[in-house]
Nucleic acid binder design. Structure first.
Length: 199
DNA sequence: AGGATGATCGTCT
DNA sequence: GACGATCATCCTC
């Protein structure tokens, strides 16, 4: 599969615009074990001043990447077992980001099955913790510039017009009512509700 | 297909 | 010491 890398600076910086623009893009991981990739079908935006955003209470060792340049990878561990993959958003100095919640597996299915310990393709990348495991993303990825390295990068994909919908974000207790989750309507690899009415 | 539950540990109070 | 931007498993329908 010939993938065209997304060049630095061609993605939006504003959080909601970035969350929408990422739908359809392809996330690629390459390493000694081979290549694994998937098409992004679900994201969530975490805005400046958003009580649900990790940057809300100020800068710390964990969330420092969110305050760095836009589009750097922000990786953190949640519930003791799962890693979540985000892209920092907004200009440097402002803490915000976009969580990638689900991928539609494209390449390296066998590798993903090994890493995930299941052959249920629908379960390989459906959920933020699952997709990081399937792509072999670890905490060392935190802070990485995806436009430079060859281990993890973004490629151009296809987002059919009119297919992107929004809903409440998933799993939150704070600011849960805000419609900052974006997903491709009807796609079976979306992790939450996947056919809600348009806004 | 969908709801409830417990595991598990880095980070911050 | 409490709390998660979750997951796998077990249950019922």
């Amino acid at each position: 599969m010939n993938l065209r890398r997304i060049e630095a600076g061609s993605l939006p910086v504003e959080s909601r615009a970035l969350a929408k623009a990422l739908i359809g893009c392809i996330l690629v991981s390459e390493g000694a074990q081979g290549r694994a990739s998937g098409r992004i079908v679900e994201t969530e935006a975490y805005l400046p001043g958003d009580p649900a955003c990790h940057a809300y209470t100020g800068r710390s060792a964990r969330n420092a990447t969110l305050f760095g340049p836009p589009h750097r990878a922000y990786v953190y561990q949640i519930y003791g077992r799962s890693l979540c993959f985000n892209l920092a958003s907004e200009p440097e100095g402002t803490g915000a980001g976009v969580l990638v919640r689900a991928l539609e597996p494209l390449e390296g299915i066998a590798l993903m099955e090994t890493r995930r310990g299941t052959t249920v393709v629908r379960d390989l990348c459906r959920g933020p913790g699952r997709l990081t495991q399937a792509l072999g993303i670890d905490r060392a990825v935190d802070g990485a510039d995806l436009s430079v390295g060859d281990g993890l990068w973004l490629a151009e994909g296809v987002s059919p017009p009119g297919r992107i919908r929004s809903s409440r974000r998933i799993g939150l207790t704070r600011a849960a009512e805000r419609r900052l989750r974006y997903y491709e309507a009807g796609n079976r690899f979306v992790s939450g509700p996947r056919n809600l009415s348009p806004p």
